[in-house]
Design a protein around this nucleic acid. Sequence first.
RNA 1: GGCGCUAUCGUCUAGGGGUUAGGACGGGUGAUUCUCAGUCAUCAAACCGGGGUUCGAAUCCCCGUAGCGCUGCCA
Length: 507
Amino acid sequence: MADSVRVRFAPSPTGYMHVGGARTALFNFLFARRHGGRFLLRIEDTDRTRFQKEAMDEIFSSLEWLGLEWDEGPGREGDVGPYVQSERAELYQRHARKLLESGHAYPCFCTPERLAAMRQEQERARLPGAGGYDRHCRNIDPEVAARRMAAGEPFVTRLKVPDDRLVTFHDEIRGDIATRSELLDDLVLLKSDGLPTYHLANVVDDHFMDITHVLRGDEWISSTPRHILIYEAFGWSLPVFAHLPVILAPGGGKLSKRHGAASVTDYRNAGFLPEALVNFLALLGWAPGEDREIMNREEMIAAFELARVSAKASVFDEQKLEWMNGQYLARRDPQTLLEPVTMIWREKGWLESEAAADPDYRLAVIQLLQPRSRKITELAEQAAYFFNDPQEYEAKPARKHLRAEAAPRLRRLVEELESLTAFSATGLENLYRRLAEEMALSAGKLIHPTRLALSGVGHGPGLFELMETLGRAATLRRMRAALEWIVTGEEESPPESPDSAQKGDGQ
RNA sequence: GGCGCUAUCGUCUAGGGGUUAGGACGGGUGAUUCUCAGUCAUCAAACCGGGGUUCGAAUCCCCGUAGCGCUGCCA
């Protein structure tokens, strides 16, 4: 199985785990599974100044939450580890030395100051086609260079980029891409701190980790010719390349925290389900070709093809994500929602009552709200009246349904409800229908005032299910309170906005 | 500035020389119903511009324009 597929996701632990990164990881994962290959995780932490421990933890927890299990990587050692680049420094140094010895690279003693001045000068002169390192150290006499190195003078190792070469490679998504080598400058392979740059580490690792397909963000397209030159310098064979399109924010531009949510953690906290986020991300830049949208993991794996990945950047449409999340939320086993939703309720301090302590009660509430919520947070927030009697009534429906004429009807309902034997959804519905007929009213004239009395808002689950869940005691208590409110004529008081109960995004 | 990548409804996309240019989200309308959500039905909504190739171009080629990326001892 020497030539079976091996792909990797190689994030750098320098910040939060962006959904774009998650999508790259997902495509790698799907591709590996599709071909019965291996999905590796490699941590690219060669920039010590930008390294963040929390970022590393976030990479792990985000991938785990999304269910993107890596076959090899930190915590799951394979034959080609370690999988953290800072632990492989010696390997890169050895290979940089090889290139120095073979004449493919040379030491560069230029100071950061000189390089900055050089760049400034280039900028000023606006040299067409130039730019990049000016090869100042490329032709230092080898003897001199060796002496300076031995003397401990700091240096970096640079690749000796050949002149006048056409560097070509095939991208599985975009086709053939060609670049003239003289447009590439002599890039740094090994930094003066002894750690490799991304370019060197990436090539060396992909080679020794037997990576067969490099699927990465398209910001790497212009680096790929450099990487190819490095492969050639070592005499190594090339992996297959495929550059994935980027994910943009709605206005265009990078999706960042400024747009609200950008990281996997943000979406998790906002109440999204991992399977919904995965499904949504999969469809950003890829389409199975049939008009399918909702797909589980196995279906996505079975259908995934690189040839069907788009080359075009796509905009992250949160509304569609919400719709998709709602689809998954409605179909979720309510039992699996109990824990996350309870957590939110507990934070809100809604679980004080005896009824709320009962998991069966909470489960019933979840089932009632499930089909009318798009996010876990939204579901949780909608449940306020299941735990506390309404303190006020939504103004608009209250004006309509809690008028003076509703009072006698509510009074009658209270009487009947006190003695109703079957306090169940069907029993309640029968009662309401019967009374409506008896009183020569439409059922709505009874239903709406009751809903207001019980929930304080004009929308929500079916009234009879609501009553059954709330139970007789709470139902009667709330109806009497509403009656009191009507009688004491408080109707002018609540100047609250008609839809103040909306607006549901978790904080 | 240089180099590169990209370009179908507002958004995600299907299609790839001859199609009523299809689906989904969002929006409109209607049905169901006690409200909301859901569901179902239905409507509006697109081939960036200009040249070329061709009997015929959204599709192939070129140019332009726009967006994005790279141009670091960052990844």
